[in-house]
Design a protein around this nucleic acid. Sequence first.
DNA 1: GCTGAAAACGAACCGCT
DNA 2: AGCGGTTCGTTTTCAGC
Lengths: 138, 138
Amino acid sequence: MVDSTDRIIIKCLEENARTSFAELGRMVSLTPSSVRERVKRLEDSGVIRKYTIEVDSAQLGFGMEAFIVVKLRSGTLKSFTSLIDTWDEIQEAYRITGEHNIQMRVVLKDQLHLQSFIDEMLKYGDPTTSLILSKVKA
Amino acid sequence: MVDSTDRIIIKCLEENARTSFAELGRMVSLTPSSVRERVKRLEDSGVIRKYTIEVDSAQLGFGMEAFIVVKLRSGTLKSFTSLIDTWDEIQEAYRITGEHNIQMRVVLKDQLHLQSFIDEMLKYGDPTTSLILSKVKA
DNA sequence: GCTGAAAACGAACCGCT
DNA sequence: AGCGGTTCGTTTTCAGC
């Protein structure tokens, strides 16, 4: 379903999601029309989930970034996941295996903000916080 | 430096990084030229780090996704970080505070692949793995 | 699945305010 | 910072292979 040409296109779009079909075509020796058809297929089949940007949240006033894993108390999973969209601090969240049930990456203004967010998490389970010092890859 | 108009533009681009300047202009009541200038400023100042896509790695043959945190042995940090770009499994990696030094998200073909990757990590420190069950947000 | 051509649209550039 | 005009490139669509 996904051939080597598609894989090149995907890699280019991972590098720069605004690459034109014309330029993608130059990379894979196809016309813009053909590339367009392939990209459409990749979108429709869900291989390409989303076109997005990576943002420096520090410059938006969120100088603190952290991973928080939560061990939810029994019975709180459903209410927790239904609330997850309401917490703006959460950039991404995953259900995971192991000691904890949820892993999240959060952005926060400062220590006080972190404290209040942890307090919120304590309503549902047992959170463990690791501050992010720097991004080492991608 | 970043006003409320910029914030709207950023949010739109997070939703769809291929939104045209023309359409962004409609959202914030500015001409395409003005939006272009703002976006350029956001790029140059590093607020917008990258235009990228989110991909369904399962459909690319990597059916297993995991978070791995590593507690590096003393002295191995530098060699580890210099090698980080050579491991294709690692989608993103961060230096973090706490018990472990490195947090990564990795994609893998299957259990055997996971095993060999963990073996690789064992050369540098003590890895702990949590499989990703599903993405709950964003 | 890929191509090529036409029409529509958007991006880039620049002078102006 | 924002605007509008020109030019140029890109996207879209579609008939044809």
